[in-house]
Nucleic acid binder design. Sequence first.
DNA 1: CTCATACTTTAGAATAGTTCTAAGCCCGTT
DNA 2: AACGGGCTTAGAACTATTCTAAAGTATGAG
Lengths: 130, 130
Amino acid sequence: MATARLRHAGLRPTRQRVELAGLLFKDCDRHVTAESLHDEVAQAGVKVSLATVYNTLHQFTGAGLLRQVIVDASRSYFDTNTGDHQHFFLEDEGMLIDIPGEHIAVSGVPSPPDGMAVDRVDVVVRVRRQ
Amino acid sequence: MATARLRHAGLRPTRQRVELAGLLFKDCDRHVTAESLHDEVAQAGVKVSLATVYNTLHQFTGAGLLRQVIVDASRSYFDTNTGDHQHFFLEDEGMLIDIPGEHIAVSGVPSPPDGMAVDRVDVVVRVRRQ
DNA sequence: CTCATACTTTAGAATAGTTCTAAGCCCGTT
DNA sequence: AACGGGCTTAGAACTATTCTAAAGTATGAG
């Protein structure tokens, strides 16, 4: 459950973090923005400030519970799936869909510049209506 | 030259657009941000407002002369190379390096959701020092 | 060449997402 | 129960970007 997961990640299980973790990790994999999560937690009748939502998303990301996905210049998405996978990005709706890592492969990446190591390879398949 | 290129793209060759196009398309492929280009044009002793730099970058992108690259949540990059290629992103320095399209390949992309068509596949190889 | 007009540029204000501040709160330990 | 350090929060601040509306300018017609 949420409390144990937080403790294991070295994060004090405060009311706010437990609430947010509950929403984020309840069911399936999810993609949220700070604002969407803030709305959702408010909808659930819990009061958590937007600043705390931002803090929490970053702490969870630092602890490896979330992964930040950069696909849109105007806002940040966070993904509850931290495993090997990539994304479709529906540009019309600003929505992400996972592509399992087993399905997709990138080949022919040149060796990185001297003194650099590959941190991650991100693939974004941008799709539009029609 | 810049003037002809602008006319061909259906853009009136104003002093500002000609100056910016001159800087952008003079030599090799380049990656700029609005701010870096604004600094550069100022350095060259020309006065172009930041708003015009933004306008121009977007108009050039709309005309197919530039391509916007989304790799960083906090700012937009524009690439003078509009051909098929991908990028290394040096996270420590906020710098982009092209990976030629012949070198890199993505396979196993599932078919997009119903009613959607693939617009573009972007690969970002994030690298860090050491 | 001159003019009219529509398109451009610009300074400054406005906006949106995000981060910061500092004051009070609360979790875990003693 | 009390304490101490981390946590939360409202609101201000910040930053990249976009908007506004007023002044400037390229272009085609005459």
